[in-house]
């Protein structure tokens, strides 16, 4: 299970961002996780619950946006349905994953003291 190592990379990245902005706490984190990224949403969330203790993210909500896999022809861009052979029947070319492999930190909301 690699979700713990993903969460520790996430926390390190968010804390660096928070420090750079002089934040005293992180309020909310939004990440995108693709269906074909190899990361399970539930495992990521439970790893986060354990890892966030005693960090700037201790009270931060983790919002996980799931991104469905979408395959398309590399030439004509027409969609190739999930579960089908990954080749365009018209162009006879391999499909490309248009989206669905994201493991992305999208947005951080932090509490910055008003000075």
């Amino acid at each position: 299970m690699h979700e713990y190592s993903i969460v520790s990379a996430l926390l390190a990245r968010v804390e660096a961002e928070a420090r750079a902005h002089g934040a005293e706490a992180v309020h909310r984190i939004r990440v995108q996780i693709g269906e074909l990224s190899g990361v399970e949403k539930e495992l990521l969330e439970s790893a986060y619950e354990l890892a966030r203790e005693r960090t700037l993210c201790e009270k931060a909500e983790l919002e996980v946006v799931s991104v469905e896999a979408r395959w398309a022809c590399s030439s004509c861009k027409s969609t190739i349905p999930k579960g089908a052979v990954l080749r365009c029947s018209v162009c006879d070319l391999p499909a490309q994953l248009a989206e669905g492999d994201e493991i992305l930190l999208e947005r951080v909301e932090m509490e910055v003291p008003d000075v």
Binding site: I6, A9, L10, R13, E17, H21, A23, E24, A25, H27, V31, I103, L104, L105, E106, R107, V108, E109, M110, E111, V112, P113, D114, V115
Partner: peptide, 15 residues
């Protein structure tokens, strides 16, 4: 002072 909620768009691979 009170804290302000500051949103930061990162859009970076976690890895």
């Amino acid at each position: 002072g009170d804290s302000d909620l500051v949103p930061v768009e990162v859009h970076e691979a976690i890895l």
